[in-house]
Structures are given as C-alpha cells and as structure tokens.
Design a protein around this nucleic acid. Structure first.
Ligand SMILES: [Mn+2]
Ligand SMILES: [Mn+2]
Ligand SMILES: [Zn+2]
Ligand SMILES: [Zn+2]
Lengths: 159, 159
DNA sequence: GACATAGTGCAATCCGGTTGCATTTTCGGA
DNA sequence: TCCGAAAATGCAACCGGATTGCACTATGTC
C-alpha cells in the first residue's frame, strides 16, 4: 500500500472526490510531516498546475483534512489534520523557526483566553510563536551568531 | 503646533531623518489612531509615491516608532508605538473585526506564555484574535446575519 | 554655500493568488 | 458497460501588494 493509496482512502473518508491531484497534494503534505506553503508544494509537484494545487488545498482544507497556518511572511502553510482532531482546526498555537523555516503544531496546548472589548464577538484566534527550533538553537550556540533573528531574511527562506 | 510638527519631533527623537514623507506617514497613522495597512495609507497620502510609503514605514518601524500587525489577509497594519513602550513592539494581542476590517491593539494584556519544545528559543509571538467588533456585532444582531464569518470576503474590506 | 549621503519618484518587475473558459475526469444511473 | 451531468483540471490572463534599479532631489555637515 503506497502513500498515494493511503491518501486516496483519506479523501474517500472525508467525502470528497479522490482525484489524482488531491491525492498527490495530500500525500506530499503528509510525507513532509510539517507545514508547507503553496509555493513549496507547487515546487514539489511540478506535474500539477499551480492553480490546481491552490484548488486542491482549498478542497482539502474545506473537508477538514488540512489546516492552514499563517507564517510571519503572511503565507499560509498547510499541515495534515490527524484523524483524531479532524473537527477542530486552528485551535492550537504554532511554532516557527526563524532560521530554518520549520513550523510545528503545538497541539497539546489550547488557545489562551483573551479579554476583548465589551460587546465584541470572538470567532477565532491565531497564535504564532517564533524563534529558534532546538536544532538551529544548538547550531547557533556553537557558531556564536549575533544576528537580529526577528528581521532575518531566512525567516521566510523556507516558503 | 500642528500634528506634522509633532511627528517631526518624534522622528528627531527617534534619531532618523525627519523627512516630509516620514512625517506625513507617521502623522496619518497617529491621527487614525488604529492600525492602517500600506494600501490604506497610500490612499490617504496620494501626494506620496507608494514606494516611498513602503520605505517610510520600514524606516519608522526600524526606529521603533511603529509596530506592524498581520491581519488574516497577510497584510501588515501599522500603529504608532506610545513613547512609553518604544522598546517592546509586538508584545500584546490584537483584535481584528472580520466585518469592517478594523483592528485594535489590546495593550493591557500580555502575551500568554507558551510551552515550546525542549531546546527551542522564543524570540517573539504574534497573537491575533478575530471576530466582530462591538459595532458590527450590534449591527449584525438586528439584521440576523447567518453568514460564515470566518471565510467572509469583507474580512479584508478595510485594507 | 558645497559636498557627501540618504531619501524620493517613477518604471519595471516579481510573486502569490484569483478568474474565465475550454477540456478532461469522475461517478451515478441507464 | 456505456452515457451524461457535474466536478475537477490546465492554461492564459489578470490582479494587487511588494521589491528593485536608477536618475533626481532633499538633508545634514563642514
Ligand atoms: Mn497546527
Ligand atoms: Mn498593537
Ligand atoms: Zn530551525
Ligand atoms: Zn467591525
């Protein structure tokens, strides 16, 4: 049973048409194991038209198989929703490494409560924590890097 | 003493050249009293080239006079930093109205703490709460609006 | 006032994302 | 298994925000 087959099953389960494009996109995202932006996916899947990748992502997201997270560059990165948490997307904070661009879900933590102005209605929240992942932090320790991480170009290196 | 003069003083204090463009941009933002995106500012200042507005914003931000907040549409909105909090930008959550696009700082609330993977280094956080502002919430109450707010187009109406 | 430097305007370009439309794929029913 | 309606795809055009290169102008210093 290949990864593609697995993806097709997920599409079937989710109740959307298991097309080749959607299976490829979903498989690529699951294989990556971390959030990928549209440009990254399009580069990974040159056999698909970029528009098709956009539309596949939209469909996958709508069906609850993916959730999108906004990076510091404003671009959405997509991650597969584990079967267990299909119904509650975007309900946890995310961590972004400014050095290598890796992004991680922090699903074990709930969104903190925030007091909003009287009369407001909260629909959702988006919480992004950024800095250095364990690997990059260790690497930087050795090479004594003084750069301003917050404004570093490589923050968006990994599109 | 006009608003422009006031802005010039701030520029001087911040140690950057008090050019006409920067003063205009800063004054416009302070006068608005709420986060404005680049397109909004450019529309407000037709006498300036859009590129100049971009560069002015960059300079103002770098000097600590402004901070930028990302909306759901990926666009940055800029707000003036109060003199008291010049050194610590982006240290509070923000609220975005999906209906009218208005954005507000919630400066009275600190960024919640988040547990990150062992060995990670946190540089900063970005916390966006979105929904309906008091005005729009009240308006919607009356006209009984069932639309899916999270995906509403007008979320980016107020650029 | 003159000079070096930094900022500005303008045009071109880039890039992510959307739209319209003709063609192909999918899938349920004959 | 074949057929037709509906949905998905590829391609081209388009859109808006953002960046870049370069000639020109404003700013601050001597
Ligand atoms: Mn996540
Ligand atoms: Mn703020
Ligand atoms: Zn890293
Ligand atoms: Zn509102």
């Amino acid at each position: 049973m290949t990864k593609g087959t697995q993806a097709v099953d997920l599409l079937d389960d989710a109740g959307i048409r298991p097309t080749k494009a959607r299976a490829l996109v979903l498989a690529a995202i699951m294989e990556a194991g971390r959030p990928l932006s549209h440009p990254a996916l399009a580069a990974l899947l040159p056999e698909l038209d970029r528009v098709t990748v956009f539309r596949s992502l939209k469909a996958l997201k709508a069906s609850g198989l993916l959730h999108g997270i906004q990076g510091l560059d404003g671009l959405l990165r997509y991650v597969a929703n584990p079967a267990s948490r299909k119904g509650c997307p975007g309900k946890h904070p995310h961590f972004l490494c400014l050095e290598c661009g890796a992004m991680t879900c922090l699903p074990e933590q709930r969104m903190p409560h925030v007091r909003v102005p009287e009369g407001s209605e909260v629909v959702g929240k988006q919480f992004l924590v950024y800095g250095l992942c364990p690997l990059c932090s260790a690497k930087n320790q050795k090479s004594g890097n003084p750069a301003d991480l917050a404004t570093r170009k490589s923050a968006s290196a990994e599109k």
